[in-house]
């Protein structure tokens, strides 16, 4: 650990962070390494050999030719094969459409919570279709990070007609008060209003925060007046 601290002090110096002047040894070594780095920077740079340039451009050209050939060869197909190809493509597209969702696939590949959250927020700029909205509602049941769920609910507020029983099911399973409140705000603004029975069941949960319980009572009182 001591050696690590010493090495870290040297690296700080190399990165332009002043080090403790009391540590003369670190100061001296850092100076030597700085000199070494400047010598490394002075090493002459080699040039790429023209044959490598040629190889890379040949590779790029081949890619272009392959792509053009592929698109041309599609046009030259026998009409019957073309018909079957189109039919098969439509079937495949339908299959992909039913089983896969572009946004969903991209979302699943994201490695961290902030990236997921940013991705969801950016969907505000997209035209989401019904499948996308259904996926987001399903995600509300699967996702564990409360702030991501709040961002999803905020996004779904743009689709008030889609706030339905699925949405309520997700609320019933939700343990975090701030997320429950986001759900309830969305329900309050929803065009669908017949949630009374489910909300009564929800309000009987023993673990509810008092603010959430008051919010449910408020929504129920509005619904009873309508």
């Amino acid at each position: 650990m001591k050696n690590e601290q010493f090495d870290n002090e040297i690296m700080d110096y190399l990165d332009g962070i002043p080090i403790n002047s009391n540590n003369q040894k670190a100061f001296q070594q850092a100076g030597e390494l700085k000199q070494l780095l400047s010598e490394l920077h002075e090493l002459p740079l080699g040039k790429v050999h023209p044959t490598t340039d040629a190889k890379v451009y040949e590779f790029i050209e081949n890619l272009e030719i392959t792509m053009n050939t592929e698109s041309k060869s599609r046009l030259k197909l026998d009409p019957k094969i073309l018909y079957f190809t189109i039919a098969a493509s439509i079937a495949l597209l339908f299959y992909v459409f039913m089983d896969n969702n572009g946004f969903e696939d991209q979302y699943r590949l994201l490695p961290s919570n902030p990236e997921k959250l940013g991705f969801i927020y950016d969907l505000n700029n997209e035209q989401l279709d019904s499948e996308d909205v259904e996926w987001l509602k399903a995600e509300l049941k699967k996702e564990t990070h409360p702030n991501i769920k709040v961002t999803i609910v905020d996004l779904l507020n743009n689709y008030p007609s889609k706030i339905d029983n699925d949405f309520l099911n997700a609320l019933q399973k939700e343990p975090i008060p701030s997320v429950q409140m986001a759900f309830l705000d969305a329900l309050e603004n929803s065009v669908n209003t017949d949630f009374s029975n489910e909300l009564v069941v929800f309000s009987q949960r023993k673990d509810l925060d008092n603010t959430v319980r008051l919010k449910v009572a408020h929504i129920l009182s509005i619904q009873s007046k309508q």
């Binding site: 902030p114 959250l117 940013g118 961002t151 975090i176 008060p177």
Partner: peptide, 23 residues
């Protein structure tokens, strides 16, 4: 990313990753 139920949040940032969201 901070989530609270009952309490205020005060957050002072000095070196942000400008590609990362804050919530």
């Amino acid at each position: 990313l901070v989530n609270a139920a009952n309490g205020e949040i005060v957050a002072n940032f000095d070196t942000l990753d400008e590609g990362m969201p804050i919530s």
